[in-house]
Design a protein around this nucleic acid. Sequence first.
DNA 1: CTATCGATTGTCT
DNA 2: GACAATCGATAGA
Length: 191
Amino acid sequence: MEATTLLNQVTWDTSFFERRATEVAADLIGAEFAVSGIGGIIVETEAYLPDDAASHSFSGATDRNRAMFGPPAHAYVYLSYGLHWCLNFVCLPGSAVLIRAIEPRWGIETMQARRGVREERLLCSGPGRLGQALAISRTQDGLPLSKEPFRLHLPARRPPISTGIRVGITRAVEHPWRFGLANSRFVSRKF
DNA sequence: CTATCGATTGTCT
DNA sequence: GACAATCGATAGA
């Protein structure tokens, strides 16, 4: 599946995110997303729910995860392994969708410069790579997705979706809460 | 191709 | 003091 065949992207309102994060995560596949004009098509997501032992929200609100308990349709950004800035979209309180991979479409040269890599498949295929390519950092934590620097448009129709278990976690590993654009070569790992 | 390992630091116990 | 929603390099099949 090539995401570039997807057309008719539509706008959204906050109610889109006021749902179970698994539904939101699936519905985000095929969406256009950009930060300051740099971005592409979302091809891989993961859902993290309340009462989910793998979620940062599992033990309640802290300084780090504050945004996960804030309003829906806002960004939650965290630092992974002391190196990688990762981006989530907040859904209902204590839940969020991790944006794991994007098919690059706009600002590819900027992404290549930020990443120090030329191969398009390696620019945004993984939450850390995506964070670096889109220049994600703590400054975006808690910002609304409806305003600059963000741009988000949903696909008019749901594309074919693959599902699987989440990546890189040690608790609640059994849930199939990872979603991807079927047969996309831009996902971080095969489904 | 798969497996292993070091990097690096904020966060929580 | 331990660990982490990862990545890239390297070694080996």
